[in-house]
Nucleic acid binder design. Structure first.
Length: 771
DNA sequence: CAGAATGAAAC
DNA sequence: GTTTCATTCTG
């Protein structure tokens, strides 16, 4: 998105201040990253620049605010992502990896299929997360309206909107206050609150932070005791938090040195640092005592930048360009601010009261939502997890950093990393949380291993290379940057990376994990930004907000990362196999041995599959639950869990069905009897109502199980279906066949509960029959 | 910039 | 019920 923002940004920039287009670009990191195949100095540089700039800007909060104000008018926070989008965000890269050739749309389709198939439990995780996200968002933006209200323009060109990107969380730190503020917004439009990008919480976690941390953190420390960092440290001490915090402070230097030597470790270190920084920032914000950090922070950043010779060179620009392209739509704001924001946040610490309010909000949000403890969801975590919670804040922060590293570590050089980790970890007992992450991770790892191991390999290879080759700090940074990306710090980057892999670069590896990165969560610091509030904002609120944002961000990130990421294989198999099984029934998998296409054996099979698939589609996908079999790699719960899933499915039709005829539908090609693809949905309709809504049938099938790779290859699918099932078989007919098959199979192969299947089928049949 | 998907909110 | 928009990114 942001990237889009980048595109958008330009205008904004112009409007707002003609100033630094670059900045925006910089802000973008992610996009930049994407575009830039390599992460190298350039990016780093950019980051730095951003930082600097941001720092500069931020330096003057006022300026920022002003901008924000402008933005604010129109700016709206972006809607929180729904569960599906979260899922997409987390898995898109995987899909792309698997199906490099697919374009995004195709990937989206697959994701939709996955989503449909996804075990309800798993899905619930995303749903919960989305809910939390939304709740938190709403807290932050009380008056927020999804639709801009009639205002015209919602997104309108107003672009002024650059801000738009705000992604978000403008936070109203103080609920009470917020309300007032928020309300205002509503009046005009949805959420004017916006502050667009004040501080860029995004960045906090982001590269800039990291970079800074890495480079300058040290310097800063040295530099000014007064500086925020020092403050932070102090704070940290007070709070006692954080190992992360400490790490942040301490590590940087070490890490850097390490980087030179080893890429991997550094990366981790860096990442950690990044988090640490975040944590620090947060803490700072919390701690009332800190002197004004903002100035410091900015200074520090600038200083750091200066210190680090990385110059931003034009190279940066290129990325920017790319960014711009994407979208303009909304705003750009983020581009600028994001990077900077974090620092800003640091700057001020709010008064206690503010802090309290902030904390309150944060806690509420964090806990409830982000923090996650409140919600039941937790599945991810084993349990006991909660132990840490003593303090909301600290734990959260801590948690984040550590967990991931481990995984990566595994892959990489464990030794070095471990050492580091050990240190960090030792500092804090986060193990519990780690677990949560681990859970997801493990799966990933597993799945990655088989087919995707290469990724990892690449990582190893790549990193070393990068690191190895480069000696200078900058170079290190580059390495770090990559690492970060790989680790998921920057999702977008990762995505780029992935592509790059496909294309030219293969650079960093992506881990699946990456989830929310800065981008995603960038909050606009803005909260502070409220124009009106400025006064207030000036000091406390904003920063607080920022802090909160940062924290929230962290939380989100943490959570997001914790969200399970499923291997494509799994899904594919699932989709295919599952479907088959589904029918077969819960238990016996053996039936369709091969994955999809494999069914060369007999037409019957294929037919069967198809039928099944159809069945699924219709009913669907939603029923995903059924998919019982866990494909190979990972353990999915897909299980058969009969009760819940199915019901669920039944209850809620899934997506596509819901949507009325869309363009897409129209667009969709449906197979004709002869096997050709044709665009006509209408045809289907006659046959069956269900179909009407969606012409799933074969096409879908193809997408789903069979041929994700190329949607286009639909024909291929046909091949699969030997007999050339007519796409349009009547459902009833298919159902019958399926039923027969099932029975047959059930008896034959496994004792599948045909009955159950039959039941399932029943609805379908009925529907058809009705028609 | 459209569009692919799902979902949530607004209208 | 329909429309908007959230994310991502190719064509």
């Amino acid at each position: 998105m942001k990237g889009g923002g980048g595109g958008k940004e330009p205008p904004v920039e112009g409007e707002v201040s003609g100033k630094r287009p670059k900045r925006k670009c910089l802000q973008w990191h992610p996009l930049l990253a994407k575009k830039a195949p390599d992460f190298s100095e350039e990016e780093e540089e950019e980051d730095e620049e951003e930082l600097e700039k941001s720092g500069a800007k931020e330096g003057e909060c006022g300026g920022m605010e002003d901008d924000s104000e402008e933005y604010s008018s129109e700016q709206r926070a972006r809607r929180p992502m729904n569960a599906f989008l979260l899922f997409c965000k987390r898995h898109r890269s995987l899909v792309r990896q698997e199906h490099p050739r697919l374009d995004n749309r195709g990937a989206t389709k697959i994701l939709a299929d996955w989503w449909a198939v996804l075990d309800p439990k798993e899905k619930q995780k995303y749903t919960d997360m989305a809910k939390e996200y939304k709740d938190a968002f709403m807290k932050a933006n009380p008056g927020y309206k999804w639709c801009p209200a009639t205002n015209k323009p919602v997104k309108s060109p107003s672009h002024s909107v650059s801000n738009a990107r705000k992604k978000v969380w403008s936070l109203p730190t103080n609920p009470s206050k917020e309300s007032s503020v928020a309300k205002k917004q509503p009046k005009t439009d949805s959420t004017p609150q916006l502050n667009f990008a004040m501080a860029d919480p995004n960045k906090m976690g982001g590269l800039s932070m990291l970079l800074l941390a890495g480079e300058h953190a040290l310097t800063t420390r040295e530099i000014s005791s007064s500086s925020s960092q020092t403050g932070c440290t102090d704070v940290a001490k007070h709070t006692g938090k954080s190992a992360l915090f400490q790490l942040a402070e301490v590590r940087p230097p070490e890490d850097l040195s390490v980087l030179n030597k080893r890429p991997l470790k550094p990366s981790l270190a860096v990442r950690r640092l990044g988090y640490g920084w975040l944590a620090v920032c947060v803490q700072m914000t919390y701690t009332p005592e800190l002197p004004v950090t903002t100035s410091l922070s900015s200074s520090s950043t600038s200083g750091s930048t200066s210190s680090s010779p990385t110059d931003t060179t034009p190279s940066d620009l290129s990325p920017c360009k790319t960014l711009k392209k994407k979208k303009k739509k909304k705003e750009n704001k983020d581009s600028d601010e994001n990077p900077a924001s974090p620092k800003k946040a640091k700057k001020r610490h709010s008064p206690e009261s503010d802090l309290d309010s902030v904390m309150f909000t944060i806690e509420a949000v964090a806990k409830g939502a982000w923090g996650s403890e409140e919600t039941p969801r937790k599945k991810a975590r084993p349990s006991g997890s909660e132990s840490s919670p003593t303090t909301d804040q600290s734990p959260a922060v801590k948690k984040k950093t550590k967990p991931k590293p481990k995984k990566q570590l595994k892959l990489k050089d464990d030794d070095a990393e471990e050492e580091e980790e050990g240190e960090e970890e030792t500092n804090k007992p986060q193990d519990v949380e780690m677990k949560t992450e681990e859970a997801p991770l493990t799966p990933k790892d597993e799945y990655t291993k088989p087919p995707q191991t290469r990724q990892e390999d690449r990582e190893q290879d790549v990193k070393p290379e990068t690191c190895g080759s480069r000696k200078s700090e900058r170079s290190c940074k580059g390495a770090l940057y990559k690492t970060l990306v790989s680790e998921g710090m920057l999702t977008s980057l990762r995505a780029n990376v992935d592509r790059g892999k496909r294309g030219s670069m293969r650079g960093s590896v992506s881990d699946h994990e990456g989830g929310w990165n800065d981008e995603s969560w960038g909050f606009s610091q803005a909260a502070t930004s409220n124009p009106k509030n400025k006064f207030k904002a000036i000091k406390t609120p904003k920063y607080n907000n920022e802090c909160m944002l940062g924290k929230l961000e962290e939380e989100f990130e943490k959570k997001f990362n914790s969200l399970p990421q499923y291997s494509p294989l799994t899904f594919d198999k699932k989709s295919v196999a599952v479907t088959k099984k589904k029918k077969n029934s819960t238990s016996s998998p053996p039936e369709l041995p091969k994955p999809c296409k494999g069914s060369s054996s007999s037409q019957k099979k294929t037919l069967f599959h198809k039928i099944v698939n159809k069945y699924k589609h219709r009913k669907e996908k939603s029923s995903a639950a059924d998919k019982g079999d866990a494909p190979t790699a990972i353990r999915y719960h897909l299980c058969v869990s009969p009760s819940p899933e199915p019901q669920k499915v039944l209850d809620t039709p899934v997506g596509s069905q819901k949507r009325k005829a869309r363009k897409s539908k129209i667009t969709h090609l449906v197979r004709t009897a002869d096997g050709r693809v044709s665009p006509a949905e209408g045809e289907l309709n006659p046959h069956c109502p269900n179909q009407d809504e969606k012409p799933f049938t074969q096409e879908t099938l193809c997408n789903r199980g069979v041929c994700y790779n190329d949607p286009r290859s639909a024909e291929a699918d046909l091949t699969d279906a030997p007999g050339g099932l007519p796409a349009f078989f009547s459902l009833a007919a298919l159902a019958e066949v399926a039923a027969m098959e099932n029975v047959h199979r059930a008896q034959h192969a496994v004792g599948i509960p045909t009955e159950g299947q039959v039941k399932d089928m029943a609805p379908v049949l009925i529907s058809c029959a009705d028609q």
